[in-house]
Amino acid sequence: MSKIENFRNKPKKTAVELVQMLRDEKGIQFNIMSEEQAVEYFSQRNNYLRTASYRKNYPKHIAGPNEGKYINLEFAYLTELSTLDFYLREILLEMCIDVEHDLKVSLLRELEADSDEDGYAIVRNFLAQNPEILSSIERKTDASFTGELIEKYFGVCSVFSAQGARSYLATRIYSVDCPVWVLEELIGFGEFLRLYRFYAERNPQFKPLMNQRVLNPVKSLRNACAHNNCLLNVLSRTSTTKPSPEVSAFVASFENISAGERRSKLTSRPMFEIVCLLFAYTKIVSPAVKKRRMAQLSELIHGRLQKHMDYFDGPTGNKLVATSFDFLKKVVDNLI
């Protein structure tokens, strides 16, 4: 096993040194944004790690004097992708929250109609089978909103815990008297999806609004957006991404997307997760909210996203980026 030596091989660099490294070692060009502007960008607007991550979408020379350097890659292309990624994440996060909200409402509606369910037993059984979720609720007792709810619906005590030679006071839940409509306010989207599946498995008559094969990628996308992770830095195919039949059929229903384009783009993890969200959105979210949010997404795709499309389109552009944006545009246009 090789030893990791990042401390030695990747030392701290100044903004000036980072720009010089991109130019000399990576072959990145500064004809649109100057080196001075790039230094200011790293100093004031964004960090190197996030900005440079978008270079993964670009090919390198595989031989010759420029071997290992990127082909026709301008620094401005990286900053543009970073900007578009930011705007896209803003809208997608709101859309993920819309899906989460309406799923929670639908589960409560189902429970209300279920005469055999009092809303409390399901919580006790669910938390008994998922103690790690109960532990995550314990960690939220100090939060301003959740703390008050936890004290009302859970028996809470303080205990001394030891971690090595260190002792500290910890919060423990010793009893549960919480209804599902309160639990929904205390757990994250991923934990809620487990609750949603838990109820469906115990109640065969319940017809979930959406398959977990679609909702799990939506959860992944929500987490990425909420944590401000980059989405557009790896647009190429990934061998582990296999679209579910319903998502493939969803895209296949659009006449302006060929079978080849569908197969290619749905094996790109970011495109696949975004399409899963759009598919779920059409099935779950209320018409009024859907109309407004889809209009916002369409405005971004037809507006700001097109501003510097010449960076990616054309004979010297980036086919991977250009075709990914075109695919996303086609999907959205079919839903407006």
Score class of each variant (00 low, 15 high):
Asp310Lys: 13
Ala15Phe: 01
Ile97Tyr: 00
Gly317Trp: 04
Asn46His: 14
Ala252Ser: 14
Asn9Val: 08
Lys319Gly: 09
Leu81Gln: 10
Glu35Tyr: 09
Ala280Trp: 15
Tyr174Gly: 04
Asp85Val: 10
Asn211Leu: 11
Tyr153Leu: 01
Leu18Lys: 12
Gly119Val: 13
Arg23Ser: 12
Asn6Phe: 10
Pro245Met: 03
Asn229Tyr: 13
Ala121Tyr: 08
Tyr58Asn: 04
Gly317Arg: 07
Ser2Glu: 08
Val289Phe: 01
His61Ser: 01
Ser239Thr: 07
Leu320Asp: 03
Val180Phe: 01
Lys330Ile: 01
Phe198Asn: 09
Leu305Arg: 14
Val99Gly: 05
Pro131Lys: 11
Glu273Ile: 10
Ser286Ile: 09
Glu80Ile: 04
Glu25Tyr: 07
Val182Ile: 15
Glu299Asn: 15
Ser220Cys: 03
Gly317Asp: 11
Glu261Ile: 11
Cys157Pro: 00
Ile122Lys: 00
Leu231Ile: 14
Asp116Met: 12
Val247Arg: 06
Ser135Ala: 12
Leu193Asp: 00
Val19Gln: 08
Val123Ile: 01
Glu184Ser: 09
Thr83Leu: 10
Leu103Val: 08
Cys178Gly: 04
His227Glu: 02
Arg89Met: 06
Phe198Lys: 02
Leu103Asp: 04
Leu18Gln: 13
Tyr77Asn: 14
Glu185Pro: 01
Ser43His: 05
Ile133Val: 06
Leu277Lys: 03
Leu277Cys: 02
Cys96Lys: 04
Arg202Gly: 14
Pro217Phe: 05
Ile4Met: 11
Leu103Asn: 04
Val180Gly: 00
Ile97Met: 07
Phe312Met: 06
Arg202Phe: 00
Pro11Thr: 08
Glu5Arg: 09
Leu78Phe: 06
Val251Gln: 12
Glu138Asp: 11
Phe7Arg: 11
Met210Ile: 11
Gly119Thr: 13
Asn334Ala: 13
Ala259Ile: 15
Glu255Met: 10
Asp142Met: 15
Leu278Glu: 06
Ser106Pro: 01
Asp98Val: 07
Gln306Arg: 15
Leu108Ile: 14
Arg304Glu: 07
Phe42Tyr: 13
Ile137Ser: 05
Thr141Ile: 15
Glu261Asp: 13
Lys242Pro: 00
Gly260Lys: 03
Arg109Gln: 13
Leu149Trp: 02
Glu17Arg: 08
Glu80Asn: 15
Thr83His: 10
Leu84Asp: 06
Thr323Leu: 01
Leu73Glu: 10
Leu22Ser: 05
Pro59Ile: 03
Pro287Lys: 15
Val247Asp: 05
Thr282Gln: 14
Ala249Met: 09
Leu81Met: 14
Phe42Asn: 11
Leu103Phe: 04
Leu320Gly: 01
Ala15Pro: 08
Ser115Leu: 08
Tyr48His: 01
Phe160His: 09
Phe192Tyr: 04
Leu103Gln: 08
Met33His: 11
Glu191Pro: 00
Arg124Ser: 14
Pro245Phe: 07
Cys157Gly: 03
Lys12Pro: 02
Ser82Ile: 02
Leu183Gln: 02
Val218Leu: 08
Val285Phe: 12
Asp310Asn: 14
Glu151His: 14
Gly27Leu: 09
Phe145Pro: 01
Gly188Gln: 15
Glu185Cys: 12
Glu151Leu: 12
Ser53Gln: 12
Tyr120Arg: 04
Ile137Arg: 00
Arg293Ala: 07
Lys283Cys: 10
Leu300Cys: 06
Gln44Val: 15
Gln129Glu: 14
Ile122Gly: 03
Met1Phe: 05
Leu297Tyr: 12
Arg89Lys: 10
Phe154Cys: 06
Val16Pro: 00
Gln306Ser: 09
Ser175Gln: 14
Val159Ser: 06
